[in-house]
Measured scan of single mutants.
Amino acid sequence: MTYKLILNGKTLKGETTTEAVDAATAEKVFKQYANDNGVDGEWTYDDATKAFTVTE
């Protein structure tokens, strides 16, 4: 299944996707991606759209 990450960081904005077996796996991938790019903020998840959002 495809999951999307929407980044609303102070220095990094954009979107990326990942293929994962479930939302928990996608969340781990996205949190590592955000951490690697220096984005740390409030996380939300919308199951209807399979989209995670992180806002700094």
Rank of each mutant, 00 (worst) to 15 (best):
T53W: 06
T11E: 09
D40H: 14
M1R: 13
N35K: 15
E15Y: 13
G14P: 05
L5Q: 01
G9H: 06
E42G: 05
K13P: 05
T49N: 12
V29F: 15
I6H: 06
A23P: 09
N37E: 06
L7S: 03
K50F: 09
V54W: 04
Y33C: 05
I6Y: 13
Y45P: 00
G41L: 03
A51I: 15
D46E: 05
N35P: 01
L7N: 01
W43P: 00
A34V: 09
V54K: 01
V39N: 02
T17E: 09
E56V: 09
L5H: 01
I6L: 06
F52I: 01
T55W: 09
M1Q: 14
F30T: 00
K10Q: 11
G14N: 08
T55L: 06
D36C: 09
D40Q: 14
V54R: 01
F52D: 00
L5F: 05
N8E: 07
T11D: 10
K28W: 09
F30K: 01
N37D: 03
T55Q: 06
A24F: 10
E15V: 14
K4Y: 13
Y3S: 02
G38S: 06
G9E: 03
K31W: 07
E56N: 05
T44G: 06
V39Q: 03
V29Q: 08
F30G: 01
Y33M: 05
V39D: 01
E19P: 05
F52T: 00
A51L: 14
T16A: 10
G9K: 04
A26D: 00
A48E: 13
T49A: 12
E19A: 08
G9W: 06
T49M: 11
K31A: 05
T11V: 11
A48I: 12
K31L: 08
D47G: 08
V39T: 03
G14R: 11
A26R: 00
E15K: 06
E19S: 11
K4W: 11
A26V: 02
V54L: 12
Q32C: 07
A34T: 06
G41R: 01
E27N: 05
K31H: 08
K4R: 12
K31D: 01
K10D: 06
K31I: 07
W43C: 02
E27M: 14
V29W: 14
G38A: 06
V21K: 13
M1P: 08
T53E: 04
V39K: 02
E19T: 14
K28G: 07
N37R: 15
A48D: 11
E56H: 07
F30I: 00
L12S: 07
E56L: 09
E42N: 09
A26N: 00
M1A: 12
T16S: 08
T11W: 14
A26P: 00
A34Y: 02
T49S: 11
T44K: 08
A24L: 10
D40T: 14
K10W: 12
F52Q: 00
N8F: 11
A24D: 10
K28Y: 09
G9S: 09
Y45Q: 01
F52C: 01
T44Q: 09
T53K: 06
D36G: 05
E27W: 15
T2D: 05
N37W: 14
A48T: 12
D22G: 04
V29A: 08
T25Q: 12
D46Y: 04
N8A: 08
V21N: 11
N8I: 14
Q32W: 05
A23R: 13
N35W: 15
A48G: 08
E56W: 13
L7H: 03
N8P: 04
Q32H: 06
A51V: 15
E27S: 06
W43N: 00
T2N: 06
D22F: 03
Y45F: 06
F52Y: 06
Y3H: 03
Y45V: 01
A20R: 02
A20Y: 03
L7W: 11
K28H: 08
A24R: 10
K28S: 10
Y33P: 00
E42S: 11
K50Y: 09
N37K: 14
K10G: 07
F52W: 10
E42Y: 13
G14M: 14
L5S: 01
N8H: 10
T53M: 09
N35R: 15
N35C: 13
N8M: 12
T16M: 15
E42C: 12
A20D: 03
Y3E: 02
G14H: 11
V54P: 00
T18I: 15
F30N: 00
D22N: 09
D47E: 14
E15S: 11
Y33T: 03
Y3I: 03
T53Y: 09
T11P: 04
A34G: 03
A48V: 13
T53F: 07
Q32V: 08
T49F: 07
K4V: 10
T17P: 02
Y45N: 00
T18K: 04
A48C: 08
E15G: 06
